[in-house]
Amino acid sequence: MKKKIIFSVLILVAVAVSIGYYMFQKPVESLRDKEATWQGSSEDLYDEFTADEVAGNKTFTGNILEVTGTVVDVMQNADSSSTLILNSSHPIFGVKCRIDPKFNKVETPSKGSEVSLKGLCTGINSDVELNQCIIQ
C-alpha cells in the first residue's frame, strides 16, 4: 500500500514537472485562430489613437486588431521579417505592421496594394504598431 502511494505521488510530480516545462518552453503563438477585438481601417485606427493616446492605449494596446489599408511603404527588417506602413491622414506616420514569415504563408504585399491583416497592437510610437501580423 505504502509503495503504491509513493509511486502515484512520483508519477504526479513527473507529470506536473513536464507540464511546467512544456508551458515554459512554449514558443510565441500565431494569432491565426484568435479573435480580433476591433476591426476597421488603418486611417480610423490612427486617427482614434492619436486623438487621445491614453484612451487609445486602453482600447487598442495589448489587443488583437483587424486592420485594412493601403500599403504606403515596405521595409526589410534586420531578421527575415518585414514591416509595412499602412496609410493614414498623416503625411509620414500611419500603422506600422511587422510581418513575420513564420506566421505567414503568403508573400509580403507590395507598395500600393490593399491589405487586410490581423495583428497584436503594441502601442503608439509615432506610428501605431502591430506585431505578429497575419495577412488575411
Binding site: 515554459f24 512554449k26 510565441v28 495589448g62 511587422r98 503594441t122 502601442g123 510610437n125 504598431e129
Partner: peptide, 26 residues
C-alpha cells in the same frame, strides 16, 4: 524610441514575464 511590447522573445512565457513583471510595459 521603442515600444516595450514590441520586443520579440522565443518563449511566450518569457515575453509575458518581461512585459508584466519586469518592465511593466502597460
Amino acid at each position: 524610441s521603442v515600444l516595450m511590447k514590441s520586443f520579440n522573445f522565443k518563449k511566450a512565457l518569457m515575453q509575458e514575464h518581461f512585459n508584466e513583471n519586469y518592465v511593466e510595459s502597460s
